[in-house]
């Protein structure tokens, strides 16, 4: 099972980033390469000075969803950033910032958390994606 999993992360809320981290770690455990492409608000969440912050939840979560997420966290669930870090230790996980989003947010590579491996454009992302699925979150 060597086809890469290619994740395009757009949303910057903790629930969607958690879902993405779970997919990343699961694929890494199976030995699949994972390419993560960070755009817009997902890229903002990977800023070194903001990665540990509360990034909120998708609007559909509501107060009940907020409580459910908080309860799981209190029970010891790893944060999405920790899960991503574990996935990188385990397998072949490459996390790239979208160059357009870097311009949009006025970011330099040094502004990003060390989880991010580099900056690339969409063409490089698709070239590396090969025949693997592309998932947009």
């Amino acid at each position: 099972m060597d086809e890469p999993l290619n994740l395009v992360l757009f949303s910057g809320t903790d629930d969607k980033l958690q879902a993405a981290a779970v997919l990343t770690a699961g694929a890494a455990a199976l030995g699949r390469p994972v390419h993560v492409f960070l755009q817009y608000w997902a890229l903002d969440a990977f800023r070194a000075d903001r990665i540990g912050r509360d990034h909120g939840l998708a609007p559909e979560a509501g107060p009940e969803g907020r409580k459910a997420v908080d309860d799981l966290r209190a029970a010891g669930q790893a944060s999405w950033a920790e899960t991503m870090r574990t996935a990188k230790e385990l397998g072949d996980v490459d996390i790239e910032a979208c160059s357009l989003s870097m311009d949009l947010l006025h970011l330099e590579p040094s502004d990003l958390d060390p989880l991010v491996d580099g900056v690339e454009g969409v063409t490089a992302f698709f070239l590396n994606a090969e025949k693997g699925q592309v998932v947009f979150i």
């Binding site: 779970v22 770690a25 699961g26 890494a28 455990a29 799981l72 029970a75 010891g76 669930q77 790893a78 899960t83 574990t86 996935a87 230790e89 385990l90 397998g91």
Partner: peptide, 14 residues
Amino acid sequence: RGLNCPMPIVKTAI
């Protein structure tokens, strides 16, 4: 025990 998906598999793989 007590770990959520996908951590049991991830820790096993490690």
